[in-house]
Write a protein that binds this DNA or RNA. Sequence first.
DNA 1: CTGAAAGCGCTAACAG
DNA 2: CTGTTAGCGCTTTCAG
Lengths: 337, 337
Amino acid sequence: MSATIYDIAKRCNCSIATVSKVFNNTGTISKKKREEILRVSHELGYIPSESARGLAKADKTTKMIGVLLHINDDKSIGHYLFSSILNSFRIVVEQYGYDVAFLSKIEEDSPYTYLDKVKSRGFDGVFVISANKTETKVKHLFESDYPLVAFDNPGSGCTLTSNNKEIVSELVDYLVSKGHRKICYILPQNKGIAKIRFEGFIEGLKRNGIEFDERMVIPGSYFTIDSVEKETDLALKSGIEPTVIMYPDDYSAVNAIPYLRKLGMKVPSNISVTGFDGIDIASVMHPSIVTVKQDAKSIGYEAAMALIKLINKEPVQKRKIVVPALICEGTSVKNIG
Amino acid sequence: MSATIYDIAKRCNCSIATVSKVFNNTGTISKKKREEILRVSHELGYIPSESARGLAKADKTTKMIGVLLHINDDKSIGHYLFSSILNSFRIVVEQYGYDVAFLSKIEEDSPYTYLDKVKSRGFDGVFVISANKTETKVKHLFESDYPLVAFDNPGSGCTLTSNNKEIVSELVDYLVSKGHRKICYILPQNKGIAKIRFEGFIEGLKRNGIEFDERMVIPGSYFTIDSVEKETDLALKSGIEPTVIMYPDDYSAVNAIPYLRKLGMKVPSNISVTGFDGIDIASVMHPSIVTVKQDAKSIGYEAAMALIKLINKEPVQKRKIVVPALICEGTSVKNIG
DNA sequence: CTGAAAGCGCTAACAG
DNA sequence: CTGTTAGCGCTTTCAG
């Protein structure tokens, strides 16, 4: 098989300890010996075995981080968001010498939990990007004192989340700054993240001195083609004659545009629209959609930095890190000021 | 720290060998002993250390597969395709007991290559989803005899690829079946994958008895908003009065629709369009875009099965696996038959 | 059916 | 500055 420190020690007439030391930059080795060892190692194509290292090291450290990212075929938006977060996370932790591995799915009937998996692989820390909180298998992870960082999973050790409420209120600010005051908000379901966003809407109205009118809120759902048309109808007939409709996602906003045109209204000349998510097409369409995008890059970065600190047992400032989302400007909102 | 086989051996009044055997289903252990060991292990929360296993096992197997997936911030389509492939790959290999880890980026000035990384981590195999072939660091990987499967990387061990040429010719078949014969094809650049697809276009024409006319081909580029408009103009003025325009990507097709409308043509009543890639929005838009989608799920599956066979030293049927892409039907093409 | 013992490749005192 | 030695937790003959 591959060369080991024994091989290279023999060739260099020294002990394996010496070889180990040069590869760990520990102890003190004469420059000459160090260079010889390095050269011979290169010749023999010697590569330290991480398994052996993991075993031998006093701190049992493997320089591997586990990522919990459940896979589901649907939900492309989440999928896209998650993999963007993962990418940016990877870039950072790799810079610090960590490799990233997935925590493979554990079946309900397995005797093991994710915590077991983490221990067995000796991961130095865990990043939970997306987990089904209802699953019992993940519970232990959160309850353990393993270095752990999670996205959108309130209640765990160190948590990352977007400022969903704040950003929606800022989107209202933006609309107001463009002269809009008659705003219709499509509310998919008043719970979870949708609820938090809706609170932002209310807050935005308040901050801008716009009196809340029940008719501004159109109950609806995340995108389906039927729902968009229905909600749009309702918004137009709400009695407040909205100058802008805030849709709950970009798909809805994108599809509202041709529907509105069919009704004889052009976006943004006659009516403005906003979306949510920041899918790629939103920015290249005509008109481009004003929308909100979670800052995947920053989320990944913050998660990485926090986790590395936890691993190194350094104090981490906040238990809950809120990453500002971004308003993506576009041409789907007209300045009617 | 965690319990080891020593702890559980002591508690069960047996040797560590016995414990090891029950966890590996090797040797022959009395039912009674096995159950006792299992019970005690559970009580003590014993989890085998994969590092130690990796070291001790004769075959040096780690049940870990490395994935090479370069990260770039842009290129969302590729990004989406790659992570879809990775997802489906993960699902399969995890079913076979493998964990998946990323091969972390190796800097140009590092003395190590990806092959070194793979050896050092002891990965059982490698899946190259996206690699910069020009990079010297990856060369060694392909040249080694490590179990390896690659996507779209001709010239390597076992390669996966979509039937780019075939599928475009089939798209032509589809258009012809809808009565189209005056087809404009936007050609981004006659090389690489674009070239292969263009060959499919030519083949499709031939197969359907349509004489090739130079004016059918509009030189252009992958999506930019300017290029779409320019190409569309050129297609309309080409002199062949196309009934359908084949755009090189979905972004272009999506954006062509409002532009065509501005010119007084409605899609698909007055003119049809097709895209390429199968981005999500393509199917939910109005009209929905007829497009082609690489079958990420099958690619991931085939890659997984092939790699597992390579790892097990079983014969793998084909060195080059071609995965059929999918035509996504939609309403952007009118039946003018 | 079970155990003793020899490693796997490496780190980490400790001694020189 | 370098070497000796004792493990890390587990697998794997080989005896019994």
